[in-house]
């Protein structure tokens, strides 16, 4: 199963983000621990990311998405960049939650979150109580990670046609997939499957 750019754009449409130049061309200029220190703005109470935010989110996506998903990194990148463009408050919340997760990884496991093995990343989230936490944007660290990291990634995935297809619905809630699918007895071929068919000719 492959996540496509189209999936990412579909997920973006579900959060009302439009794809501007920043999405296509830009990346975060990631705030790193050393950079923050150099700038003199970091403090022990406000942990900063030691890695690119997108690396961390992709690492989290590998855990919260089902296995066997291709194209994940591009999907996450396109979605997150588009999602946070022109939404500074959301971007700040996401960045803070990611930084907190990264700080916990360094405290507990001695490495940045993105550098841990996938099973350790999974266990760390569960040890933090994220699996049963309520998603609260301004809540505890665990609640913020659930809101900004886990739930945002899950929302993007399962409101996209590819994520929906994995569980039996090609037009999931949040996706403007038209009014044909509800009339059909089974899932229509995906665009990837259709293009595959074209190639076979």
């Amino acid at each position: 199963m492959e996540l496509t750019r189209r999936d990412a754009l579909a997920a973006l449409a579900a959060v009302g983000a439009t794809v501007g130049g920043g999405v296509l061309a830009g990346r975060y200029d990631p705030p790193r621990a050393d950079a923050a220190s150099d700038a003199g703005s970091g403090s022990a109470a406000e942990p900063t990311l030691s890695t690119d935010l997108l690396d961390l989110l992709d690492a989290a996506a590998e855990v919260v998405y089902p296995s066997g998903v291709d194209g994940r990194r591009t999907f996450v990148e396109t979605y997150v960049l588009g999602r946070t463009e022109n939404q500074p408050a959301y971007r700040e919340g996401l960045q803070e939650a990611a930084a907190q997760l990264d700080a916990v990884a360094r405290d507990w496991r001695g490495q940045p979150y993105a550098d841990l093995d996938a099973d350790v990343r999974d266990k760390l989230l569960r040890d933090l109580g994220v699996e049963t936490a309520e998603p609260v944007a301004d809540g505890t660290i665990t609640e913020r990670i659930r809101f900004y990291v886990v739930n945002d990634l899950l929302f993007a995935f399962y409101s996209s046609p590819t994520g929906g297809r994995l569980v039996g619905i090609e037009n999931p809630i949040g996706h403007p997939g038209g009014i044909e699918s509800y009339q059909r007895a089974s899932m229509s071929p995906s665009s990837a499957e259709r293009s595959g068919g074209t190639n076979e000719r």
Partner: peptide, 20 residues
């Protein structure tokens, strides 16, 4: 599925199985 996923107590393959 998307609404159930956002309130689920798990993720990854286990969540996909639950949603299926």
């Amino acid at each position: 599925p998307v609404i159930e996923a956002l309130g689920a107590d798990t993720w990854g393959d286990e969540l996909a199985e639950q949603l299926n």
